[in-house]
Amino acid sequence: MPQCLVVDDSAVMRRIARSMLEKLGFDCTEAADGAQAVEAVRQHAPDVILLDWEMPVLDGFGALTALRAEPWGRAPRIVMCTTLSDMERIVAALEAGADEYVMKPYDQEILADKLRAVGVLD
């Protein structure tokens, strides 16, 4: 079963994303900010990370750059999530190593399409 780390400072958003992912066949863990996400991935790297941009402590972009700087044997796929549609931010995230980008609010079909695009869902 593929593993997904859901990272969002909103418990409600984590629960919604987790529900969608579990219906798609993923085993999920959660983190409430980027610092928790980096530590969780260092302990056990998932197949994919659903990473919110706007969070306290360490935001999604900071977590993305920290995760991509790690010497992984197998780097997890990272899908950035945000309510912001600023093209410069999207480009910056992709250039920093995000594999895909999804705008909130998203539904299960949109999420499934993004996960297929990064190769973690058939």
Rank of each mutant, 00 (worst) to 15 (best):
P2E: 06
P2T: 10
C4F: 12
V6Y: 02
V7T: 10
V7I: 10
V7Q: 10
D8G: 05
D8Q: 10
D8C: 09
D9S: 09
D9C: 12
D9V: 11
S10K: 05
S10V: 05
S10T: 01
S10M: 02
A11S: 15
M13T: 14
M13R: 12
M13G: 03
M13V: 15
R14G: 06
R15C: 07
I16W: 01
I16Y: 05
I16Q: 08
A17W: 00
A17N: 04
R18I: 00
R18T: 14
R18D: 03
S19E: 05
S19W: 07
S19L: 11
M20I: 03
L21S: 06
L21W: 08
E22N: 14
K23L: 13
K23N: 13
L24V: 12
F26C: 05
C28V: 09
E30Y: 04
E30F: 06
G34P: 01
Q36T: 04
A37S: 11
V38N: 14
V38Q: 09
V38D: 04
E39I: 08
A40E: 11
V41A: 15
V41E: 14
Q43C: 09
H44N: 04
P46Q: 15
D47R: 05
D47A: 13
V48N: 14
L50D: 02
L50P: 10
D52T: 08
D52H: 09
W53M: 12
W53V: 15
E54P: 00
E54V: 05
E54G: 03
M55H: 07
M55R: 12
M55G: 07
P56F: 14
V57T: 15
V57Y: 09
L58G: 02
G60N: 07
F61Q: 08
G62N: 12
G62M: 11
A63K: 06
A63M: 09
A66H: 08
L67F: 08
L67R: 04
L67M: 13
L67Y: 02
R68Y: 06
E70I: 01
W72A: 12
W72G: 14
G73N: 15
R74S: 10
A75D: 02
A75G: 04
P76M: 14
P76L: 09
I78K: 01
V79L: 13
V79F: 00
M80Y: 05
M80W: 05
C81H: 01
C81M: 15
T82Y: 11
T83C: 07
L84H: 12
L84P: 00
M87P: 11
M87Y: 04
E88D: 11
R89A: 06
R89Q: 05
I90E: 13
I90N: 06
A93P: 03
L94C: 01
L94I: 12
E95N: 15
E95H: 05
A96Y: 11
A96C: 04
A98P: 09
A98G: 11
A98M: 05
A98V: 08
A98K: 06
D99M: 01
E100P: 02
E100C: 06
Y101W: 15
Y101R: 00
V102K: 08
V102L: 12
M103L: 10
Y106C: 09
Y106N: 01
Y106S: 07
D107E: 03
D107Y: 03
Q108E: 12
Q108I: 15
E109A: 14
L111Y: 02
A112S: 01
A112R: 06
A112P: 00
D113P: 00
K114N: 00
V118K: 01
G119T: 03
G119Y: 03
V120E: 03
D122R: 01
